[in-house]
Structure formats: C-alpha cells, structure tokens
C-alpha cells in the first residue's frame, strides 16, 4: 500500500528524519509513536506531499507520490491533521468538502451523488445529529468526528491521522478509535495514525513504529515494540509493561519518583 524508501527530510536544510524505511500493508492499522520532536508530524507531512523530502521516495500503491497529481493523491489518501481551522461553515458543508478532489475543473457545485456519499458517512460517524451547527460551535470531540467524516467522504484507501485523540476525554478517545477500527474492518481502509498515548496505540494498532530522534527505533507488533526497555531507552522514563487483562495487549504503567524511592 505504502512504501517509504530511504526518506530524508526536514526544514531549512536541517534533517528531522534520517533514512526512514518502512512499508504499510493494505488493511493494516499502523501507529506511530515517539517523544515530542522525534519527527512524527514531519513524517506525516512528507507522506502527504506537504513537505518535499531531501531524498528518498514514497510509493503509494506502487506509484511515486511526486509523480501524482494533487487531486489523484487526495482521492486515495485523506488526512485528519492537528490544525483545526475550518472557516465559517456548518458541519454538513464541512463534510461535503471531502468531495472536492472529485470535482472537475469547471465544476462549482456538488452533484447528487456527492451529497449521498456525504450523507452516508455522516450517518456512520453520527455527526448528522448536529449537521446544522457551525464548526466553531461544537465541542472538541464532535469536531474531531466531523473532521474524520470529511476525510471519509473523500473515500480514501489510506487514512492518515495526526493525534486523533489529543485533548479529548476517554469517552471520545475510545469512541473515535472504535470508529477508526470499524472503518478499518468494514471499509478496508488502511490507517496510519500518530498517537501520543502508548496504551491506546498498543490497544488499537496492528503494528507500531517507535520513532526516536528522526530514526525508526523499532517497527513491529505492539508486543514487540512496547517493551519496558525500549520505552525507557527512548522516553528516558521508568515504566513497567504488563498485559491488559481483557485484550492481552501490552499496557504501560508509569512509575513516579516517590514510588521509585520507596522501592529502592
């Protein structure tokens, strides 16, 4: 689905990512984790062609993305970023924007089919309940759902998300990740998402990439990547990793300074 080969990129001549190589298989949910400044968002920006790499290639379905048109990419890859700017529009109008990659040059208005598709995904994500509200009037969780809906209306094969659960309460965190999991299994959408929360990453992702200072520290299943050694090495924090009693996925426990002293 997605192959990254020897990717080097950064800003203003400074390398943020060094020689990144990995592949994402069709139908996979890949989580990207790593400390602040490790290059997670830079990687995502490179994948969507916002940032031009210094060297290396990114292949989407076997085709180099720098040989593809902007429209062509937008029909295959949808992005939910951390930027929350939405102008002055209603949730419904915002969702319908997802059809823009399918417009012809001289097409100004949506067709009947476009509205039906927007309708379908609004029902699926539940944003139809507040479709007439303005994007500025809804809560952070509703907003995130609206953005995911807009991305779905693009009918992508690959969905990229930059911290979809940040600033949300646990109800919305789980709600959004459950939705993503459902989209993955029902619509066969491949998902690549940056996550801050290691436990959510362990719970929901098939594969995880741990980034450290612009390099891939480890790439594998949650059990392979989320080991106490790797996390202590990369995050410089003492942790204990146990399995979640329900899902048997790895769960990271933090150890506070006071507790550390007690146990010595």
């Amino acid at each position: 689905m997605l192959d990254i080969k020897n990717l080097i990129c950064g800003y203003n001549g400074k390398n943020i990512l060094n020689d990144i190589n990995f592949s994402v298989n069709k139908g996979e949910i890949l989580g990207i984790i790593g400390p602040n400044g490790s290059g997670k968002t830079t990687l995502l920006r490179a994948l969507t062609r916002i940032l031009k790499p210094y060297s290396g290639n990114i292949f989407l379905l076997g085709q180099d993305i720098h040989d593809m048109g902007y429209n062509e990419i937008a029909r295959k890859v949808a992005v939910v970023s951390q930027e929350h700017e939405s102008g002055w529009m209603k949730v419904e109008e915002y969702a319908l924007m997802g059809r823009v990659p399918y417009y012809n040059r001289f097409q100004l208005f949506e067709k009947k089919g476009d509205i039906e598709i927007a309708e379908k995904y609004m029902l699926m994500s539940g944003v139809h309940l507040y479709r007439d509200k303005f994007m500025q009037q809804i809560s952070g969780g509703e907003r995130q759902l609206a953005e995911i809906t807009r991305a779905l209306v693009q009918e992508p094969e690959l969905l990229l998300l930059d911290e979809p659960t940040s600033h949300l309460d646990i109800t919305h965190q789980v709600g959004i990740l459950d939705l993503i999991k459902r989209l993955n299994s029902e619509l066969k959408i491949t998902v690549v998402m940056i996550l801050h929360d290691l436990n959510l990453a362990g719970e929901y992702c098939d594969k995880i990439i741990l980034l450290n200072q612009g390099c891939i520290y480890n790439h594998g299943t949650p059990h392979e990547v989320l080991t106490y050694k790797a996390i202590e090495d990369v995050y410089k924090t003492v942790v204990i990793v146990e399995n979640n009693p329900i899902s048997n996925k790895p769960y990271v426990f933090l150890v506070s300074e006071a507790e550390k002293k007690k146990n010595i």
Partner: peptide, 15 residues
C-alpha cells in the same frame, strides 16, 4: 472554499 480550512487542509483536498 477549501482554503478556509487552512493551506495544508486545502492541499490535502487536492488543491
């Protein structure tokens, strides 16, 4: 219209 969701957002919509 697409630009009203930001320049990156618009680029992600194929603009």
């Amino acid at each position: 219209n697409a630009l009203s969701i930001g320049e990156e957002g618009a680029a992600h919509l194929g603009i």
